[in-house]
Design a protein around this nucleic acid. Structure first.
Length: 272
DNA sequence: AAATCAGACAACCGCTCCCGA
DNA sequence: TTCGGGAGCGGTTGTCTGATT
């Protein structure tokens, strides 16, 4: 279902993503967010271009992506919106929770387009028949082609299988995920984040960009994971953090830091 | 059983848009 | 106002898989 992995001239990998690459990307984005897609692969230890990473994350790895067959309602909505908007896949996908523009586009090209064209032709033929011979339209078979949604099925059970990998990964994000050896972490980030290890409050904060709400999890790792798996979290950091703090609860006074990245506090006592 | 074909879809490519300097 | 870099979008390609011959 995918291309065979290979490398381009500059050594960037292309083609199918391996489970290991997925793991690295999920781990990195979950931990640091997507602060710069172009730079991200370098820090995440991936030999991929930023565009490839972005596409992989947005279309397949981020939480709450809905997989499996399109429902009758979804197909109906796609056809209706396409009629009004044309190939504006991102706009159409925005109306289908959990669906990506790529998935909607693919489904249109492989299934819906033919169906719509077939319907148009059928209707056109019928109109011709009606014009030429009103009686002949009565024997036209309109039951199949004129039922555009007859072949759609409910959300299949394979959708859960598709989430298996991500679920398993998230489940494996125990204490060791946060407290692992820093030797593999990009030195820039380690340096930036290790600036103030004397203040290891270790307060975990998550943030939802759409609602612009922040939630303080303290050291409650499981509540953070719940928020993450329910996709109510777009990014997170641990205190201290430098950035726009206007929406952060007052009790989390940010410490001045030079880091442009999320500040990650590694404190082995936090989770014990 | 092997070969062929068509459908499905993951992923790449190039263009456009947006934003900050 | 202009320019450059990064992100986003849509078109297209290439490979896998299941169905058919």
């Amino acid at each position: 279902m995918a291309r065979t992995p290979y490398c381009d001239k500059s050594g960037m990998r292309k083609g199918t993503w391996t489970a290991e690459e997925d793991r690295k990307l999920i781990a990195y984005v979950t931990r640091y967010g997507c602060w710069n897609w172009r730079q991200l692969p370098k820090f995440a230890g991936l030999s991929r271009c930023g565009k490839s990473c972005r596409l992989r994350w947005l279309n397949y790895l981020r939480p709450n992506i809905k997989r499996g067959n399109f429902t009758e309602q979804e197909e109906e909505l796609i056809i209706r919106m396409h009629k009004n908007l044309g190939n504006r896949w991102s706009v159409i996908a925005a109306e289908l929770p959990g669906r990506t523009d790529n998935e909607v586009k693919n489904h249109w090209h492989t299934s819906l387009k033919k169906r719509v064209i077939h319907n148009k032709n059928t209707i056109s033929n019928e109109e011709t028949l009606v014009t030429k011979s009103p009686a002949s339209s009565q024997i036209a078979d309109i039951s199949g082609p004129l039922s555009p949604f007859s072949s759609s099925s409910e959300f299949s059970s394979t959708a859960e299988d598709d989430f298996g990998f991500l679920d398993a990964f998230i489940e494996s994000m125990d204490e060791s995920f946060w407290l692992d050896d820093l030797s593999n972490t990009p030195s820039e980030i380690v340096q930036n984040n290790i600036n103030d290890t004397t203040n290891n409050d270790g307060v975990l904060v998550s943030h939802n960009h759409s609602s612009n709400e922040s939630f303080v999890h303290g050291n409650d790792f499981s509540s953070f994971l719940d928020a993450y798996t329910e996709s109510t979290v777009d990014s997170f950091w641990t205190h201290p953090y430098e950035g726009d703090m206007s929406h952060v609860p007052a009790q989390l006074t940010p410490l001045p830091m030079e880091s442009e990245y999320f500040s990650i506090v590694y404190d082995e006592d936090i989770w014990s």
